[in-house]
Amino acid sequence: MPRLSADCRHMVSFTLNGAPVSGEAEPRMLLSDFLRYVVGATGTHVGCEHGLCGACTVEIDGQPGRACLTLAVQVRGAQIRTVEGLAPAPDRLSVLQECFREHHGLQCGFCTPGILVTLDALLRDNPAASEPEIREALAGHLCRCTGYVSIMRAALAAQQRLGKKTDA
């Protein structure tokens, strides 16, 4: 990684949900702030900036990660996927999103983007994930509204529906 000057802004470019984005950032700028305030992708939420609540989870080169613990300059050239990139079209929800809607898997929706990113990656990388595996993946996210019951239901329903889709 090149040495960066703390006092300067540096050009940061990466791929966000399949499209190129770029902007300037001081080396200390968090990826969460860059996404929200520089790029304007406000779907990724910030709940603690300590890496604990999981609301800011985004996919960085195929792996879910905390945008609040990542500096913008660290993801130059990376493939970033956020909640805005999960739906197949602006007016159509993904299977996972649809299941959240059907099963009331969200209330205030603030933690939801991070949870969707984590579950989307889990169900893609481990389509046969067991109930405890799904629960454990979910344990990296704090939700204060639902008590997790409906989120688990939505995740299991999505897994089943995605499985059927693959089988067909």
Partner: peptide, 8 residues
């Protein structure tokens, strides 16, 4: 809310 278009 599911597509990241909430208005918080």
């Amino acid at each position: 809310l599911l597509i990241g278009r909430g208005r918080y």
